[in-house]
């Protein structure tokens, strides 16, 4: 019995550690006060600022568009790559797989620096494309990692059967392999989005001047203690938190439904 109490107390303690800072931001997102700890009356003005302040609005849109674009492209590239790696038993597959794993373990700062060197070597200015390429280089290997296990689980005779029944390899790829590994592709896409949304270092090394994502905007605001920029970020955090809660709930419901149908 005491063991149980101790373990529950421990869980609650860690939960408080994890959620206290977030709840603090959520609570103070409803007051226009510039500093946390000083309550200036209830107001939704910080939420309004997310839409009215052009700088804030632009950086939010930038972040979301970049994440969707990078995740979409990396999912296509990574899925094709994963299929290629899986079916090539020779040297080529091994080499590509090894190269793919480099950025999974590499420190982001090293990736960022290496890309900065590449763009300067090619005498490219930092543009949206360099930023997009940076994000692709970071997140595509993770798509490969989430697709590969599904390929391993797939019954190899399905593809052979499709060929025997007269499908072309292209048709067999789209009608047999892709549907079979769809869950891996979807989770790879989700992972790619979260990685792109979260990235600071690679963004800061590849982004064009004057372009901000949530990460770079927030980091600069925190570092420079920009009292005018910080409050709106509280409202933004609260909204992102709400979205996270909703996504997790939906995922849980879907998972439990799947279990029931099984």
């Amino acid at each position: 019995m005491t063991r149980k109490i101790i373990s529950y107390a421990f869980l609650v303690f860690v939960l408080i550690f994890v959620y206290a800072p977030i709840l603090l931001l959520v609570i103070y997102s409803f007051t226009p006060s510039t500093i946390i700890g000083k309550w200036d009356g209830f107001s939704l003005s910080l939420y309004g600022e997310l839409f009215t302040n052009a700088r804030v609005r632009t950086m939010i849109i930038n972040t979301v568009v970049l994440a969707l674009l990078a995740a979409g492209l990396s999912t296509i590239l990574g899925t094709i790559g994963a299929i290629g790696i899986f079916y090539s038993r020779g040297k080529l597959g091994k080499v590509v797989k090894g190269a793919s794993n480099i950025n999974v373990i590499n420190a982001e700062i090293v990736i960022g620096v290496s890309l900065a060197l590449l763009f300067s070597f090619l005498t490219f200015n930092r543009t949206y494309f360099s930023l997009l390429l940076g994000h692709l280089a970071l997140i595509t290997p993770f798509v490969v990692l989430s697709v590969t296990p599904k390929l391993k689980q797939m019954d190899p005779s399905l593809y052979e059967a499709a060929l025997d029944l007269g499908a072309t390899p292209t048709k067999a790829l789209f009608k047999v392999i892709i549907p079979e590994i769809m869950s891996g592709i979807v989770s790879g896409f989700m992972l790619a989005i979260t990685l792109s949304l979260d990235d600071y270092i690679i963004t800061s090394f590849t982004k064009p001047i004057g372009f901000d994502t949530i990460s770079t905007y927030a980091y600069n605001a925190v570092k420079n203690q920009a009292k005018s920029d910080l409050p709106a970020l509280r409202a933004l955090s609260a909204i992102i938190f709400l979205i996270a809660v909703i996504v997790v709930i939906i995922m849980n419901i879907r998972a439990s439904r799947k279990e029931k149908t099984k």
Partner: peptide, 23 residues
């Protein structure tokens, strides 16, 4: 199917491996 890893391989060579050699 194994030729599918060529585009990804080229991408990795250009944007992952080559930059490391630049470092």
């Amino acid at each position: 199917r194994k030729q599918l890893c060529i585009p990804y391989g080229v991408f990795l060579a250009l944007f992952v491996v080559f930059p490391l050699f630049l470092i």
